[in-house]
Simulated assay, not measured.
Amino acid sequence: MPLKIAFAASRAAVAQTARAALIGRYGDADPGAADVIVALGGDGFMLQTLHDTRAMRAPVYGMNRGTIGFLMNEYGEGDLIARLEAAEEAELNPLSMTVQDIHGGRHQALAINEVSLLRSGPQAAKLRITVDGRLRMDELVCDGALVATPAGSTAYNYSAHGPVLPIGSDVLALTAVAAFRPRRWRGALLPKMAHVRFDVLEVDKRPVMAEADSRSIRDVVSVEIQSEPSVVHRILFDPGHGLEERLISEQFT
């Protein structure tokens, strides 16, 4: 039977043009019945597509019609079926974020790359860090902090001088953003199943916001983060260009 492909594209004109051209060649299946979903855009759109399709059976194959494209394959129209049939699959577990805000609200979200806390006022944030119920740091004064998965370790985490994690490692990166006290504290490596809690100190004076893959929540009191093994995102890559190779290559550029 022919491969059933569903095409999704970001709003960018170049992505929409590519989607129209590909549909003209290969047709367009309903995402719920597709064998594979092809996402056209950049990394932000890929994350959005993975979140939107996580309840569907089809894996996602990205083609870069955006900017960075770390999670994407190169764009090409002519040999798509052969590329999809030869593609290698990577499975990713997202992070679960639970936020308590100053109004008593409780918010939950999933993050494939990272969960980050960032100051949202003129003064540095003050955070208390607890890991698996054990207090690890009484007070971190910083612009923010984040917990990143291996897949997200080359994104914001890397920009904040956090470590690049091998894609198959059962490790999370806890990384500080512009730490002031302890001076130049860079963070820690944690087991994948660790439960991390941040408590915001001096909430009124030093407001903090939390983000999970760009979903933002303001006026945070506490944030709890842990891996969510019950959710599995399936991503397809061209042979020799998977996440493991990309993570290694990123460190030599």
Score class of each variant (00 low, 15 high):
A55P: 00
P59E: 00
M63G: 01
V115S: 02
Q48C: 08
D170G: 13
G242C: 12
V196R: 02
T130Q: 03
I248S: 10
R186V: 07
P207N: 06
M1N: 09
N64W: 05
A188N: 02
R218M: 13
I81S: 05
I112E: 01
I102T: 15
Q100E: 15
T98M: 01
R218N: 13
T130F: 01
A176W: 02
A86N: 13
L174E: 06
R11S: 14
A155R: 08
G76W: 12
A194K: 03
H161Y: 09
D213H: 01
S159G: 12
A33Y: 01
G44C: 07
V36H: 07
L135M: 05
G69W: 05
G121A: 05
Y26P: 12
A109C: 00
N64P: 11
I225N: 07
V171I: 13
I23V: 15
A194V: 04
G133L: 06
H241A: 12
I81K: 09
R119H: 01
Y26E: 03
L92I: 15
Q100N: 13
F252R: 15
F180T: 03
G240D: 13
Y26I: 09
F45S: 10
V14T: 11
H233L: 15
A188Q: 01
F252G: 08
P239C: 09
V14N: 14
R184F: 15
G42T: 06
M1P: 04
S249D: 14
H241F: 12
I68V: 15
G69P: 02
W185T: 03
M193T: 03
R206G: 02
V221M: 12
L47K: 04
A125C: 07
D238S: 13
E114L: 00
P122W: 07
Y75R: 08
P31M: 08
I167C: 07
E139L: 02
V99R: 04
G104P: 11
S120G: 07
A39Y: 10
A9Q: 08
D35V: 02
R119F: 05
L95I: 00
A179G: 02
N93L: 09
A12I: 11
E114S: 00
G62Y: 05
D213Q: 09
A82N: 07
I5W: 11
A13N: 04
A145C: 00
P166Y: 06
Q251N: 05
I129H: 01
H195V: 15
G78I: 00
V99T: 11
I23W: 10
L118S: 15
A86C: 06
N64I: 02
N93Q: 15
I225L: 05
R215W: 11
M46H: 05
V36M: 03
A109S: 03
M72A: 08
L247Q: 02
P191N: 04
V208P: 01
L174R: 03
Q108P: 00
E224I: 06
G162I: 04
H103K: 14
D30A: 10
V200Q: 09
P122S: 04
H161P: 03
S96P: 01
H233M: 14
L40K: 01
G144Y: 08
W185D: 10
A8K: 14
E244V: 00
